[in-house]
């Protein structure tokens, strides 16, 4: 992967000037590369990772991981039914996986009841859905390589030979 993408993936707010210095390219070149990546859909969006555990208003929201077993449709495979499912606003993430179930969803709702309703009323009744298992998320420890609880500061001496 281009180093530029790697740097942006880690810090979407890094300035053009710093990107240029760090990669040894000119600012102009960096800017045009980024444009190109945006145009090609390689860079999809710039997002911020928020520790919602610390927000009172978000604290009660619930996330659920839902395993979905589906029957693939003739000529359409899994894609058609996956699309029916991932288009729901509540579905934040949708993966097709190997193993004992087919789709893994991350669903967000304002409380447990809302998620339960979504499963009962929207997801389960779909023709191709053979079954669901819902796991409510209890605590986030790490996401996208970021550990939520900050470990204590390092104890390096601030000066040494």
């Amino acid at each position: 992967m281009d180093e530029l993408l790697e740097l942006l993936e880690n810090n979407a707010r890094i300035s053009l000037e710093d990107l240029a210095k760090v990669t040894g390219r000119s600012q102009k070149e960096v800017a045009s590369r980024i444009k190109k990546y945006e145009k090609k859909g390689i860079i999809l969006k710039y997002k911020t990772l928020i520790n919602k555990n610390k927000l009172r208003e978000e604290k009660d929201k619930v996330l659920a991981l839902i395993e979905v077993k589906i029957t693939p449709q003739k000529d359409l495979g899994f894609d058609y039914i996956a699309e029916r499912i991932y288009k729901f606003e509540e579905v934040k993430t949708c993966y097709l996986v190997s193993g004992t179930f087919d789709l893994l969803l991350v669903v967000e709702g304002k409380d447990i009841q809302t998620v339960a309703n979504f499963v009962a009323e929207k997801l389960a009744p779909l023709n191709s859905v053979r079954g669901t298992t819902t796991h409510f998320l209890l605590k986030k420890y790490k996401e996208d390589g970021v550990i939520f609880e900050k470990t204590k500061g390092k104890r390096r001496l601030s000066i040494a030979y």
Partner: peptide, 15 residues
């Protein structure tokens, strides 16, 4: 002096 001072940005570190 450096070791006794707080909130220093140190570029003097050897590790």
């Amino acid at each position: 002096l450096v070791l006794g001072m707080k909130e220093v940005i140190s570029l003097g570190v050897g590790e």
